[in-house]
Lab assay of single mutants.
Amino acid sequence: MISLIAALAVDRVIGMENAMPWNLPADLAWFKRNTLNKPVIMGRHTWESIGRPLPGRKNIILSSQPGTDDRVTWVKSVDEAIAACGDVPEIMVIGGGRVYEQFLPKAQKLYLTHIDAEVEGDTHFPDYEPDDWESVFSEFHDADAQNSHSYCFEILERR
């Protein structure tokens, strides 16, 4: 099963200049909980913004210009990325925008964090048809001392 995991502000903004323009430790914990011990696929820009392999996960970098870091697996196509994951129950696609666009048609599940923030962004989550998805989990949280904005975790499964 292919799943996408993303944090989205208003207007589906997911990033600005290779960074997330908010401070939500709870979302980072949600991300870790849902990706640990699963292969993660990301684009080169996302890889560069993280700066290191995510521990406890097979890191697969999709790029037309593969790098030389041998701590991760470099691939040039969506099919190659899927094959590099091996026989696993769930593959997690973690961004960025172009990689989400490439995998959305193949995805069966979306793990979304909806952030109540209007922020400037240069990267967006692809538009998706809500009628194609069923919400199977939703959990709202107010902003607090650690988390700069209110947010809602949601899991959607393709109908």
Rank of each mutant, 00 (worst) to 15 (best):
V72F: 15
P130Y: 08
V119Y: 03
R158G: 04
I41F: 01
P39E: 05
P53A: 14
Q102T: 11
N59S: 12
H149A: 04
A29M: 03
E80Q: 10
S138K: 12
Q146F: 11
V75I: 15
A143V: 08
K76P: 10
G43K: 03
P25M: 13
R12T: 03
Q146I: 07
W47N: 03
D142K: 09
P105F: 08
H45L: 05
R71P: 11
T68R: 12
P39W: 06
M42Q: 12
G67W: 05
A19T: 10
D132G: 10
E129C: 11
E129Y: 13
D69T: 08
V72L: 13
A7C: 13
L28G: 02
K58C: 10
Y151W: 07
T68F: 14
S148P: 00
D142C: 08
A6Q: 02
Y151F: 05
C85N: 03
P53T: 15
D131R: 06
P53F: 13
E134M: 10
F31A: 00
G67Y: 12
L28T: 02
G86R: 12
M20P: 00
K32H: 03
P105G: 09
K76A: 13
E48K: 14
D116C: 15
V75L: 12
D11E: 15
L156R: 12
V10E: 09
P55N: 13
W30M: 15
Q146N: 08
N147W: 03
Q102A: 11
A29I: 02
Q146L: 07
L54V: 05
G97S: 06
M92V: 12
N18V: 03
K109C: 08
I155Q: 05
P105W: 08
A26L: 04
C152I: 09
G67A: 14
Q65R: 14
F137S: 11
I115E: 04
I50T: 05
S77P: 03
W47Y: 15
A19L: 05
K58Q: 11
V13N: 03
D70V: 12
Q102S: 08
D79V: 11
T68S: 13
P126S: 06
R33D: 09
N59C: 14
K32Q: 05
R71I: 12
A145T: 07
D27G: 02
P21G: 04
E90H: 07
E90S: 03
S63D: 01
A83E: 14
P55F: 14
K76G: 12
E80G: 08
M42G: 02
M20V: 00
H149E: 05
K109I: 11
A117H: 06
A83V: 14
V10I: 04
I82K: 04
I41L: 10
E118W: 14
R12A: 03
H149L: 01
V99R: 03
E101L: 08
E157R: 10
